[in-house]
Simulated scan of single mutants.
Amino acid sequence: MSVTFTPGHGITIAHVVTCGCPGATELAPRYGAWTDADDDAGRASAATQRTPLPGCEMPDICPQYPLHAEEIDADGPVPDVNIHNGTARLLLPLLGLPAADGTDDAYGDLPAGDFVGRVLMALALAPQGAGPRAERSGSTFVDHVPGHLRMRLDDLLHMAQWCVTHGRRVTWS
C-alpha cells in the first residue's frame, strides 16, 4: 500500500495509449475520447506479443506489461509523489496531516500554498539524517537510507511548488 500525492485535476486536452514511460507518452498519438484510447490499449495489450512503443525507456521490460490509457494535461507532465505506507506514517504527522489507521484511509486535499508551508516547516524541523534505518511493513522489510524522509519531503516540495505555479490544489490518497 502507498499514499500518492498529486496535483488536483486539471484540463485534459487529449488521451494516449502508453506504457507509462514519459518518452512513449510524449510521442504517442492523441485521442479525443478516453474510451477510444482505452479500447486501443486493451486491444494492444491482448496481442500475443507486442513491440515497445516509440520512446519507451525500458524496451526489454515494458512489452511484458499491459498498456493503458492516460490523460494529457493542458499544463504538460503532471508530477506525483508515491510514498510507501511505512514512510507515509512518518511523513503525514510531520506535515500536520492525519495518518488515519495505518494510512489506509489517508486522503485529502489542501491549497498548494498551505501544503508548501507544511513541507517547509517539516523540512526545518526534520534533522538532516532523519529517516528510519529499517522497518517492517506486513511481510515486507524496507531498508531506508538516512535522509530518506528529507528526500521525500523535497519531492513533495517540488510537486507542491508545481501546484502553486499552475493554480492546483495538492491532493493525496
Rank of each mutant, 00 (worst) to 15 (best):
A41E: 00
D36E: 07
P127I: 08
F5Q: 08
V16M: 02
V3W: 02
G10R: 13
S139D: 14
D36Y: 08
A126V: 15
C62R: 03
T6Q: 00
T4N: 00
G76Q: 02
A46D: 06
R118M: 03
M159Q: 06
W34C: 10
M1N: 08
D114E: 15
R150G: 03
P77Q: 09
A14Y: 09
E71G: 13
A44Q: 10
W172D: 09
A28W: 04
T48L: 15
G131H: 12
D40K: 00
L91R: 12
H166R: 01
D80C: 12
L92Q: 13
G129D: 08
L156K: 00
H158Q: 13
C21V: 10
T87W: 01
A69H: 07
D114W: 12
V16H: 03
T171S: 14
R89M: 15
Y65E: 14
L91A: 09
R168G: 00
L149T: 11
G32V: 12
A100Q: 11
G147I: 08
A41Y: 00
D36N: 12
C56A: 08
H84T: 01
T12D: 03
P98K: 10
H166E: 07
T51A: 04
Q128T: 14
D143N: 14
H148A: 15
G23P: 11
P111D: 07
D60K: 13
D80E: 11
T35S: 15
